[in-house]
């Protein structure tokens, strides 16, 4: 209860100082940084853990998301797209399963199309600096694995056919996040930023995303599904 009271006071204080800049706003640019573990091992469903054995850690993922605000009323509805790059490095395994000195990697380039709803009504109306938002959309992830020579990995399938370690896997995603308006710390600087570059609002945010990337349940696709947390900066202009 005490925490709630403190938060309420802080929000009230912040809301009195917040001021929305004047120029029109119709786009949002988000810069994300985070980590996630693709569900390769879970997708196999047989207890084998090739991803964990070789990498044993999460992928680092950097991405940007741009959306166009189609409607502004009781919140903002936007349509946007994202592009990212994720990577993880590990050690190849010897025949007895031990790690060797060979460096190998796994890389992804996730592409997303998302419908975004930001409930910024409180911020617009009362200057409350917190903006929750939700996203849902389609994903396409280009991926490739590298071998010890840093080439795209190759191996043979059960019938001796060559299998190249690169591809594109489709899927969908939903996300929820919370933005915090930075302009309240320096309204004057925010106003100047708006006048000089058209950036109305600057935010920091945290976002939780669930992505289901396995070619919509295909049995013959690598599973890159993940629950991921990312942090970053966002600019509305």
């Amino acid at each position: 209860m005490r925490v709630g009271l403190v938060l309420g006071v802080v929000v009230a204080l912040l809301s009195t100082t917040a001021a929305r800049a004047d120029s029109p706003r119709d786009m949002m640019l988000e810069l994300h940084g985070g980590a996630f573990t693709p569900g390769v091992d879970d997708g196999l469903g047989n207890g084998n853990t090739p991803y964990g054995d070789i990498f044993g850690t999460s992928m680092t993922l950097l991405s940007l998301h741009v959306d166009y605000e189609m409607w502004q009323g009781f919140g903002t509805l936007a349509l946007g797209g994202g592009l990212g790059y994720g990577w993880v490095n590990g050690k190849a395994l010897s025949s007895d399963g031990e790690k060797t000195d060979d460096d190998v990697g796994f890389n992804i380039v996730p592409l997303t199309i998302s419908l975004v709803y930001r409930w910024d009504w409180l911020e617009v109306k009362y200057g409350v600096p917190f903006v929750p938002y939700f996203k849902a959309g389609l994903s396409g992830t280009i991926w490739w694995a590298t071998d010890a020579k840093d080439d795209i990995a190759n191996t043979r399938g059960p019938n001796g056919e060559e299998r190249t370690g690169a591809g594109l896997t489709l899927g969908w995603h939903v996300a929820a996040g919370l933005q915090f308006l930075l302009d309240i710390f320096s309204p004057g600087m925010a106003q100047q930023f708006d006048e000089e570059s058209g950036v109305n609002n600057s935010y920091i945010f945290v976002e939780v995303m669930h992505s289901d990337v396995d070619d919509f349940g295909s049995d013959s696709s690598i599973d890159l599904s993940a629950d991921a947390v990312s942090f970053g900066l966002a600019f509305e202009f």
Binding site: F106, G157, T164
Partner: peptide, 20 residues
């Protein structure tokens, strides 16, 4: 040695690779 793609295939991975 076994890189990730080889380990994935050896572990029963069914993705044939390549762009779909």
């Amino acid at each position: 040695t076994e890189d990730f793609w080889e380990a994935y295939q050896a572990a029963g991975g069914t993705d044939p690779g390549g762009f779909c």
